[in-house]
Amino acid sequence: MSEAKEDAKKPMTEEERLQLCEKLDKELDDFINSLERKRYTEGWPEDRWEEEMDKHPFFMKSVPEGDEMSPLAEGLAKLKYDPEENTPLELATSYKEDGNFNFKHKNYRLAILGYTEGIKAKCDDAEMNASLYNNRAACNWFLKNYRTALFDSERALSFNPKHIKARLRAAKSAFEIAKYDTCIAHCQILYEEQPDNKEVVDLLNMARKRQKIQLRDQRKKDRDDKNKNEQREGVIKAIVQRGIKISKCDGKLDIDLGKLEPTLPGAQDAIVHIEDGILKWPVLFLYPEYQMTDFIRACPENVPLLYQLEQVFPAPWDKNDKYSCNSINVYFEGHDKMPHIIDPSKNLGELLVAKYFELKAGTPSFFVFPRGSTVEARFLESYL
């Protein structure tokens, strides 16, 4: 009886193993090639994922009655997957059968589980490992997990560098995630083996075209980044040279453009910049009497503030014509938390270096009132 058991557990010969691997691979390849080329829409629906999980042997709570069982379910019933009763190669083969079964039924996520368990068996057969990784890559390809498909395909190639299907899938996956250099490298190897393969030639040509565009765009981005960095450095250098005080900065070494970005909604792109050596600032005028504001996107530092006010007056909300350049007072709130009246005929640059002026949120802000008005008196009293 023990002799019969020994015979039953006799390991497969090399010839038998190769025949089995070829048979499993051929069955899966034939099935893949027979698939209709269309967009994948057969994944687990969100409203049925528990039902799908219950069909899998790893998660099912009871054996289904009357339904066809996958090889994995039948194998579990027969202790087919017991590591103490099977060699790593036999386990890998069984899990591969289960993966192939689920793949043919378009249960790609379940197939991935099968192939993954086969990989975990850690058999020392290179061809089996290459096949498991290649098949798992096929599942990820159909699920549009192109980055993972590339990883699995290249893992398959590490076990069998001659695996044509794994290399082609690696090339196609690399193309989908814009890794054109990787795609080209795989295509060139394929081209050496199959110079007449139209799919490989077309993919290689497309990847080379896309790579040229990608390199051109990267060069443009690098130039733009360089110009932006030079612009930032120029702005910071100019601010330091002029001695403009920045709120929440502990000195000139602590100044960066992040602290100069306007906080007003929609004004983030109006950050201070430099043109021909002239700083251009976003400026905010506030009219507390009407709770209105005017936002000037780029006020040159060498232009009187009065010129900007002339552009906004008469204001459409000023029904009584109280606001004009000849009838207003303009203030800023200093770092001493007190209001300071200014002369709007001075250049903006002069006002920014006034004794108590401190730049907040990257935007010079000024309060505007009708001269001698009640609202101006209340504003001043609020600081007492």
Rank of each mutant, 00 (worst) to 15 (best):
residue 9 K to P: 00
residue 13 T to A: 01
residue 16 E to Q: 10
residue 17 R to D: 03
residue 18 L to W: 02
residue 18 L to S: 04
residue 24 L to G: 00
residue 25 D to P: 01
residue 28 L to R: 03
residue 33 N to G: 08
residue 34 S to L: 02
residue 39 R to Y: 10
residue 40 Y to A: 06
residue 44 W to M: 05
residue 44 W to D: 08
residue 45 P to E: 13
residue 45 P to R: 06
residue 45 P to N: 09
residue 49 W to D: 01
residue 49 W to I: 14
residue 50 E to H: 08
residue 51 E to N: 05
residue 51 E to T: 00
residue 51 E to I: 00
residue 52 E to N: 01
residue 52 E to D: 03
residue 53 M to C: 06
residue 58 F to R: 11
residue 59 F to R: 07
residue 69 M to N: 10
residue 72 L to W: 14
residue 86 N to Q: 11
residue 89 L to Y: 09
residue 89 L to M: 13
residue 99 G to N: 07
residue 100 N to W: 08
residue 101 F to Y: 14
residue 104 K to Q: 08
residue 107 N to T: 00
residue 112 I to D: 05
residue 113 L to D: 08
residue 116 T to G: 13
residue 116 T to Y: 15
residue 128 M to N: 14
residue 129 N to E: 07
residue 129 N to F: 02
residue 131 S to W: 06
residue 133 Y to E: 06
residue 133 Y to K: 12
residue 145 N to E: 04
residue 149 A to C: 13
residue 152 D to I: 05
residue 153 S to D: 02
residue 155 R to W: 01
residue 162 K to D: 14
residue 166 A to M: 04
residue 171 A to S: 15
residue 172 K to W: 09
residue 173 S to W: 12
residue 173 S to M: 13
residue 177 I to C: 06
residue 181 D to P: 05
residue 183 C to R: 04
residue 188 Q to E: 13
residue 194 Q to T: 10
residue 195 P to G: 01
residue 198 K to P: 13
residue 199 E to P: 04
residue 204 L to W: 00
residue 207 A to F: 04
residue 209 K to R: 13
residue 213 I to H: 15
residue 214 Q to G: 11
residue 214 Q to Y: 15
residue 216 R to F: 09
residue 218 Q to F: 14
residue 231 Q to K: 11
residue 233 E to Y: 11
residue 235 V to S: 08
residue 237 K to I: 10
residue 238 A to M: 12
residue 239 I to P: 12
residue 245 K to A: 06
residue 245 K to T: 04
residue 248 K to N: 12
residue 257 L to F: 04
residue 268 Q to T: 11
residue 271 I to N: 04
residue 272 V to D: 00
residue 278 I to Y: 00
residue 284 L to C: 10
residue 286 L to K: 06
residue 287 Y to T: 02
residue 289 E to A: 12
residue 289 E to D: 14
residue 292 M to W: 07
residue 297 R to G: 07
residue 299 C to M: 15
residue 304 P to K: 15
residue 304 P to I: 09
residue 308 Q to L: 12
residue 311 Q to L: 15
residue 314 P to N: 01
residue 316 P to H: 08
residue 320 N to Q: 15
residue 322 K to C: 10
residue 324 S to P: 06
residue 328 I to G: 00
residue 330 V to I: 11
residue 331 Y to E: 03
residue 331 Y to P: 01
residue 333 E to F: 06
residue 335 H to A: 08
residue 338 M to K: 13
residue 341 I to Y: 01
residue 341 I to D: 01
residue 343 D to T: 08
residue 344 P to F: 09
residue 346 K to V: 15
residue 348 L to H: 04
residue 362 G to E: 03
residue 374 T to L: 14
